[in-house]
Design a protein around this nucleic acid. Structure first.
Length: 597
RNA sequence: GGUUCGCUAGCUCAACUGGAUAGAGCAACUGCCUUCUAAGCAGUAGGUUCCAGGUUCGAGUCCUGGGCGAAUCACCA
């Protein structure tokens, strides 16, 4: 039962009966009543004055009167200016609650038969993951979960940029300066080790450029001619020829990186259903582009390079294959998209979680796929998100200002430990339980921090001002869950396992109970809204509001001192539903909630 | 220069897609632990929603112009 549709239905009837006016229930919108007024749902009367041929105030009054008389759900009303504030009866609230209480997996929508692919992460293999990847991964993973809750079948994937000049840079630096170091011999994570040599390459490269410029070369010349760069490019050529030695080294170093990444992903709590590697898709891209040339969709210039003409779309011409036949980024992405569609013929949509710096790229990609005749191209969506800035500005890996993902997560966990120990809250915990709790809290705080912001907006992260554990934060919500868990444990000890019938005769609800039920009732809409907008922040904001409102109830209303049996059982059931909803909503964000903290 | 996006309290973010007196958290100040967890609750203070016009019953939200910032417009990925 949906309280809003009942109200809309009844308002529609009121218009018919009072003003002989047709008003489609679907066209009626209700908004939450502001806190300072009595009521829960507000009907704005201004737009309907011409239907009723009365002032908005008067319209509100007569409709309110009608609802009070004729709608079972409505117990009262008030009109302030043109706003009709509707007060529901306590029985209505109770029945809304009961229906939620009796719904299995409340907030998980039935299958809609659609398949969706969500891509996120997609790192290069020459350096470790950083703060930007954290936002990307948390966002993509969460959107995938939200789409599942909306009834979609979801495939989580990433494309790993395992080939190209960047990894060759790490390779050449390792060959020259590495002394055969391995993750085992140094005790370093593989991605860190390879990243170190990427930095080493850059240092050496800069040194050589400086020397060449001192020797009279121009900057441009020097950048081109620096020996280490030439050697890296030579490696790339050999790799494309599948030179066995180079190939083996490439595989070895990539393996190190993957092993390192695995550790990071595990700590982040994200996973993938299928991995794609650029080294396996870029050739398909070339084929598809050549096919496009044959079909006259693309054109070739005299030098042999292949282009697409997008001037008809208000864009420019775009290169798809170089004159020497080597592929560019776009070539690979065309191949990958098509390969994915072959692997999963039923997918209706691909979502790309990639930073907003690539908006133009994806705009072009989708147009090209459309030109190639793929009907799903119109359903492709670039889930574009803003950069995470530091107080000093943008993160620059070469300038060493990146915030490393592993380090940051570890810092968060350490902070959680210090915080928890200060509060002295781990009495009776084993060491292992305590460790798990710190991880839950630290990672939860981080995820919530990154997900509560609208993805489109760029956000600021100040490493010196550590992420809070109070207020609008992950731990606050986790804390609320732990509090409720304590109540449920006690209820269990007392043998209280309420069923709907145990409180159906309850006659009165506390105001905080009603506002919490209002929020619980909203959850399904929030899941839908978060799905259509690809916005985990909607869930984050919601679950904070829910926790906040429950805490208000917790403060004002006692559960176990309650003498009325019906009220007691209701409050236990009510708390249980809140805990479950918090857990499920946080689950959509990838944040787990503890039983104690 | 063209295009796109952003600008809301000292700071970090909201505002149900056009609704009431623009809300939370942090930081500051004041109360509340003999009670189901004070990582909590209640309160005080803090605003020319970048600026100027316009649209209408009503604008942070829509349209026009301007300001500031970011991204992009690569034979980089």
């Amino acid at each position: 039962m949906n309280i809003e549709s009942i109200l809309k239905e009844d308002i529609s009837k009121a218009f018919k009966s009072l003003f002989d006016a047709e008003l489609n229930p679907e066209d009626i919108s209700l908004q939450p009543t502001r806190k300072e007024f009595e009521g829960s749902h507000t009907f704005v009367c201004f737009p309907y004055a011409r239907l009723s041929k009365k002032s908005p105030e008067e319209t509100g009054n007569v409709i309110g009167e009608y609802l009070k008389e004729n709608s079972e759900a409505v117990g009262g009303f008030n009109v302030v200016k043109g706003f009709l504030n509707i007060v529901l009866t306590d029985a209505t609230w109770l029945s809304v609650f009961s229906s939620i209480f009796n719904t299995q997996d409340y907030g998980v929508l039935p299958s809609n038969g659609k398949e969706v692919m969500v891509e996120y992460s997609s790192p290069n293999t020459n350096k470790p993951l950083h703060l930007g990847h954290l936002r990307n991964n948390f966002l993509g993973w969460s959107v995938a979960e939200i789409l599942k809750a909306n009834g979609n079948k979801v495939h989580k994937v990433q494309i790993i940029n395992d080939r190209g000049i960047h990894i060759c840079k790490s390779m050449i630096a390792w060959l020259k300066f590495g002394n055969a170091e391995t993750p085992e011999s140094t005790g370093k994570k593989g991605d860190k080790l390879v990243g170190d040599y990427y930095v080493k390459f850059d240092q050496e490269y800069k040194k050589q450029i400086a020397e060449l410029i001192d020797g009279g070369a121009t900057k441009e010349q020097a950048e081109k001619e620096a020996p280490i760069m030439q050697e890296a490019q030579e490696l790339l050529r050999k790799w494309e020829e599948k030179d066995p030695e180079v190939y083996a080294l490439w595989q070895k170093m990539n393996e190190w990186v993957y092993k390192g990444f695995d550790g990071t992903y595990r700590q982040m709590g994200v996973d993938f259903d299928k991995l794609y590697y650029e080294s396996e898709t870029y050739l398909l891209g070339k084929d598809e582009v050549m096919k496009g040339v044959e079909q006259g969709i693309f054109f070739q210039k005299e030098d042999g390079s292949v282009w697409v003409d997008l001037t008809g779309e208000g864009l420019d011409q775009k290169l798809l294959l170089r004159a020497d036949g080597t592929s560019v980024y776009m070539t690979q992405d065309i191949g990958t998209a098509i390969l994915r569609f072959r692997d999963f013929p039923k997918i209706a949509k691909q979502i790309y979680t990639v930073g907003n710096e690539q908006e133009y790229h994806f705009k072009v990609l989708f147009i090209i796929l459309d030109k190639l005749g793929y009907k799903w191209a119109k359903e492709c969506y670039h889930l574009s998100y803003g950069m995470v800035d530091l107080p000093t500005g943008k993160m620059k890996s070469r300038e060493g200002t990146v915030v490393d993902a592993d380090d940051l997560m570890q810092e968060m966990i350490d902070t959680a430990r210090v915080h928890t120990e200060e509060l002295g809250k781990i009495e009776g915990f084993t060491e292992q339980q305590a460790g798990e709790l710190y991880e839950t809290l630290g990672i939860g705080a981080l995820k919530y921090f990154l997900l509560k912001v609208d993805p489109k907006k760029r956000m600021l992260f100040d490493p010196n001002e550590s992420i809070q554990f109070q207020g609008n934060t992950g731990p606050f919500i986790q804390y609320t869950h732990a509090r409720i868990s304590a109540i449920l444990r006690k209820a269990d000890q007392l043998g209280l396992h309420p069923q709907t019938g145990d409180f159906s005769a309850l006659s009165q609800l506390h105001p905080t109970e009603k506002s919490v039920i209002f929020l619980l009732n909203e959850y399904v809409d929030k899941v839908k809204e978060a799905g259509t907008n690809h916005s985990p922040d909607i869930i984050a904001q919601y679950v904070y509001d829910l926790a906040k409102e429950y805490n208000r109830f917790y403060q004002e209303v006692s559960i176990f001192n309650e003498e009325d049996e019906q009220a007691l059982k209701f409050r236990v059931a009510f708390s249980k539903v809140v805990a479950e909803t918090i857990k499920r909503a946080m689950g959509l964000l990838g944040i787990s909630v503890p039983e104690r903290m």
